[in-house]
């Protein structure tokens, strides 16, 4: 069953330097129980795409298209209806728990908030639930640690508390934005294992936003590769690693230390100053004349494998 369907999404906003075209004509589908990886480099618009689903972007943002969640268009809901979705139906795990948590509230108070808000529990009962969920994410002696503040937790524990907060109301969809960024490898392994455990045998779906293909390889069923503002390739995880088709995906994989360390030329364009035609053409080794003027459409080249490139036209 389709849980979330993003159709023709455009997100633009104005800054002093000019119009930022962060997301352009993006189509994505997330099925129930699926983990979709959204892969891309810094500044490609992947975080903006995630934030637009929960409508967490600032007022001056222009959002067009449809974001259908269980058939309802989130972009048409009023603020009150949206508030019932946030945290309860769709939860977000942010990349920096220290800035996403309230520094003057104890961990217990913060995580109990969604229980009180969405499930109408009394404080005392909510706290019991918090202890249970902290146990689930393996925080040692949770009944004592709920009285501590975020700064008293280590980085890995904070990230796990953040995950606990996201899971609190058993949402149908989790948006996880770089959940392991800045963690040490052994702690990252703990968090990845935890997320794997929580998503594999449940109906919970996840959109994992990351630049780390290693983490994506462990957690995702399907991958969408983003290059400034648009999706350039979509495939299931095995296919993408075995058979990458878009020149950018090939270059991205090839630049990893474990896969050859062959860097691509140049840098990703800025979202303020996107090139015409195919966004990748200035760096593409296969670029031809028409790549400069015309934007390629997404074509299906295999079972559930889509590429936006004229090479496969």
């Amino acid at each position: 069953m389709t849980l979330l369907s993003i159709q023709n999404l455009k997100v633009h906003f104005h800054t002093e330097d000019g119009a930022v075209r962060a997301v352009n004509d993006v189509d994505l589908v997330i099925e129930e129980g699926e983990t979709l990886g959204l892969i891309g480099e810094t500044g490609c618009g992947k975080t903006v795409l995630g934030l637009s689903i929960l409508r967490l972007l600032s007022e001056n943002t222009k959002v067009e298209g449809k974001i259908l969640y269980k058939g309802k268009d989130l972009l048409k809901l009023n603020e009150g209806e949206m508030r019932k979705i946030r945290g309860k139906e769709i939860a977000m795990i942010f990349q920096n728990p220290l800035t996403s948590m309230n520094p003057v509230l104890t961990i217990g108070t913060q995580i109990s908030e969604p229980f009180e808000l969405h499930q109408g529990l009394k404080k005392k009962d909510a706290i019991q639930k918090v202890i249970a969920i902290l146990k689930l994410v393996r925080i040692p002696s949770p009944s004592e640690r709920i009285n501590e503040y975020p700064h008293e937790f280590s980085g890995g524990m904070r990230q796990r508390a953040m995950i606990a907060m996201g899971l609190a109301c058993e949402p149908s969809l989790i948006l996880a934005d770089e959940p392991t960024k800045g963690l040490d490898v052994t702690i990252q392994a703990q968090v990845v294992d935890l997320m794997k455990e929580l998503t594999t045998n449940s109906k919970t779906s996840m959109l994992l936003i990351t630049h780390d293909l290693g983490v994506a390889a462990e957690l995702c069923d399907n991958i969408a590769v983003m290059y400034p503002g648009e999706i350039v390739e979509y495939a299931d995880i095995k296919e993408l690693f075995k058979n990458p088709k878009h020149p950018y995906t090939q270059g991205f994989l090839g630049s990893l230390p474990g896969r050859g360390l062959k860097p691509m030329n140049g840098m990703s364009p800025s979202l303020i100053d996107l090139p015409e035609g195919c966004k990748f053409h200035p760096r593409c080794p296969f670029a031809r004349e028409r790549c400069k003027n015309k934007r390629p459409e997404m074509v299906e080249i295999g079972k559930k494998h889509f590429v936006r490139c004229f090479l496969y036209d």
Binding site: P140, V185, Q188, A189, G214, K238, F241, G258
Partner: peptide, 19 residues
């Protein structure tokens, strides 16, 4: 603990407890 760049790789991971 290094994430392996192969979704089909099967391996045992030694996950260290604690910090």
């Amino acid at each position: 603990a290094i994430p392996v760049l192969d979704p089909e790789a099967k391996r045992k991971r030694i996950v260290l407890g604690g910090e």
